[in-house]
Structure formats: structure tokens, C-alpha cells
Design a protein around this nucleic acid. Structure first.
Lengths: 215, 215
DNA sequence: CCGCATCCGGGGCGATACTG
DNA sequence: CAGTATCGCCCCGGATGCGG
């Protein structure tokens, strides 16, 4: 990116991560951990391949990510965030939180969706309000790939995958699931909009925000 | 900006404020409060006039700013952040904080500078560690325009202008002043690099961070 | 299949000129 | 003062090719 040419911390930050797609690449690396080129590309629907390659080069030069050659049998590179790159998490948290209201309207026609993108609102909004009880696991089915929410140390962690014995299973559209996770939708309302909840309803209530956070 | 076409809070946020110059326009409105077109332009060295006009239109349509017609005698518009726009402050705070390390190297050749941009690191790093004492005011001279730091309620507020009877006056380059404010530079080191401190040194020490924050 | 490089059309960007 | 108009250029997006 062309530098803004301003001696200002914000402008300098934007010189590094202000380019189109750059923040979203960081999002993928934060959500997935170290990733291969193809995995990144899969998590970034719409990006042109040359742009991804160019951004990865830029980010590497800027010290935000590193590129590791996997050992010879595997002919692939692994991209991973440096400490400096991980330090961008508060930035993406803030931006993601600011963007949540735009999710309420539901996906625009043609919008792509990846299950793991839900990890953001999930970890942002949910908390384990009864950490002294045994941990619970909630499975989410919102597309092809299942996700699982687990309580641990008062927090809730989200990741792609299944639970062995989930306390509850939620199925629904991204829009409805997000409404439930963010506390914008009551369970009754959500059910009217197609939410299916199997298992222990209390597991869900345990992690939902008490009051709907102001968006 | 072209939409990313992703049903993701972060991508949706970037659809609105991810365009080039957009965040910096919000920076100016946060730092200055409601502003005229020309004032914005002055605080955004390097921006093309048509781009500023276009971004202001976009931000207005997105509900981030409003445009008010000033009463007839003054034939000018006033742009001001909406509540939604003010809600971007945590985002810019996080990004600005992430960008501070790039300031340590000093300005790049040709970098523009505005005194008020210092308000960011100032309010971010400084705190009144002795709020029970009478408030102090510190004047900063780093360019044409003076700035003043005032303690109030345990916090430190920065704004353009002078103090009537400053407890201390600091003069130096942006780079050195920033080093002092962020706690990266000891006073001795700063003096070697051209810092001039008049008045009560304790006023400065009172608001400096105790330990240099990890950048 | 993975990780790009190349090519090309369109649009956003930057600089300057101009207008009410 | 507060923008609009214009124009060249480069960046972006999409498609394709290609070596390992």
C-alpha cells in the first residue's frame, strides 16, 4: 500500500494492515492458526490468487507473519502469525464487535459464509456464568462443518469440530444462530425462525449473555 | 468500497470503514469534534479533494456521520460523528496502539505531522497517578500549534491550545515528545535528543506511565 | 494438488484545474 | 470556502497457465 505519509500511529498502522484483504487474512490466521496457502484461500472467498500471494509477501516483509517451509515430504508452506501479528487481535476484536449490527439484517444475497467466522461473536459475547459446574460442550450445525463451543475457566471457546457427547446441539441458519449467541434473540423467537435445539437447554442459557448487549 | 460479500462481522465492518482514507477521516472527527470540510482537509494531508467529498458522502449514507447546514450567514457544512461513528473509538484506539512501535523510528522523510495527532498516544499512555493533588497542565510545543495536557479525574486529556499558567512546558520534535509521553525515553535521554523542559519536572513525572509499556 | 505468476479489463485513486 | 470535473495511472478482480 502507498504510505499515507503521516507521522501518526494510526496512519502507520494502516500503512501495514490497511490494504484491501489484509485484515481478513489476519482474521483467518487468528481463527485457524498456522495455515497453508490453499486453506487461507478457502477461508477468503472472493480473493484473487495473486492478491493473496502478494499480501502474504507484504505481511511477511512487515513482520506480521512468517512463512515456514514444511519438511521435504510435504511440498507446502505454512503461514503463521508472529507475536506482532497476534497483537492485532484486539484490533480485529474491536472492528468485529463494531460490525455485529450489520449481521442482524442477515446475509446479503450472494454472501459467502464459513462456520468458523462465528467463533468471533461467540467468544466475544459468550461467557460461562457458572464456572464452578462441570464444563459443557454445545455443538453448532449451521452449514457443512460442525462447530463446538466449550466452557473453560469462565470463558467459552469455539472451534471447528464435533463434541463426543455434547450437552446440547443447535441447528439453524447463520443469522439465527448468531442472534441466539449474541443474546439478541430469545429462544422462542429463534425457534420461530427455524432454530432447532436438542439436549439440555440450560447448557445454552448458561453461556448466553444475561442482557442483550447494546449493538 | 466493493463489498467483500462475506457474512462476517469483521468483513461487514470493513465494507463500511475499510476504504482508503476512511479511518483517517474518522480520526480527524474524533480528535477535532464537528468539523468543516476545509478543516478536515487540513488534517488529512495528501488526500485528494474529490476523495474526501466522496468518502464523506459514503460515511453519511452509512450513518457514521451527519452533515449539518450551518445557519445562512455561514455558507458551510458541519460534519459530525453519529453515535455509531463515535462507537468506532475503540477500533481506532486499538489500531493506534498497535501502530505506536512504528513511531519509534521517527518520521519517514516527507512525513506530514499535525500536533493533534499526539492526542492519541497521550491519552492512551498517560494517567494522573496522583489524582488527589490539584490538577496540572503541561504545554507542548512541537510545531506551530501548541497543545496542552490537563489532568482531570485521574485521566489526562489533550487538546490543541495553551494553558494560562502551565506547570511545565515541553519543547521538542514529535519523535522525542512521543518517546517521553509513551515512557520509552527517560528524561535524560530525551534531553540529549533535544527535549527542553521548563517548569516543574514533577508535573510530567506525575502523568508518565510508571513502566515503559511493551510495544 | 499446491503455490503461485502472468495477462487483461475496469475501476478506484491521486493530482490538478475549475466553478458557484 | 466547499466542493465538482477531468484525466492518467495503478491497483484490483477474474481467468488462465505452469512448474514442483
Amino acid at each position: 500500500m502507498r504510505s499515507y505519509g503521516q507521522y501518526c500511529a494510526l496512519a502507520k498502522a494502516l500503512d501495514v494492515v490497511g490494504d484491501r484483504w489484509t485484515m481478513l487474512i489476519v482474521r483467518e490466521l487468528l481463527l485457524r492458526g498456522p495455515s497453508r496457502y490453499t486453506d487461507l484461500r478457502n477461508g477468503l472467498p472472493g480473493i484473487a490468487t495473486n492478491l493473496l500471494a502478494e499480501r502474504l509477501r507484504d505481511l511477511e516483509r512487515a513482520g506480521v507473519i512468517t512463512r515456514e517451509q514444511a519438511p521435504p515430504p510435504i511440498a507446502t508452506n505454512i503461514f503463521r502469525l508472529t507475536e506482532r501479528g497476534e497483537a492485532l487481535r484486539p484490533v480485529l476484536d474491536a472492528l468485529g464487535r463494531w460490525g455485529v449490527p450489520y449481521m442482524e439484517e442477515g446475509p446479503a444475497p450472494g454472501d459467502e459464509f464459513r462456520e468458523r467466522w462465528l467463533a468471533w461473536p461467540a467468544e466475544l459475547f459468550l461467557e460461562d456464568r457458572e464456572p464452578e459446574l462441570p464444563p459443557v460442550a454445545i455443538e453448532l450445525w449451521v452449514g457443512e462443518e460442525p462447530m463446538v463451543l466449550r466452557t473453560a475457566g469462565g470463558e467459552v471457546h469455539a472451534q471447528v469440530g464435533r463434541a463426543e457427547r455434547p450437552d446440547a446441539v443447535l441447528r439453524g441458519t447463520p443469522h439465527v444462530i448468531l442472534g441466539v449467541l449474541s443474546g439478541q434473540l430469545e429462544l422462542d423467537q429463534a425457534r420461530e425462525r427455524g432454530l432447532v435445539l436438542e439436549g439440555d437447554e440450560r447448557a445454552l442459557e448458561r453461556v448466553q449473555p444475561q442482557a442483550a448487549p447494546a449493538l
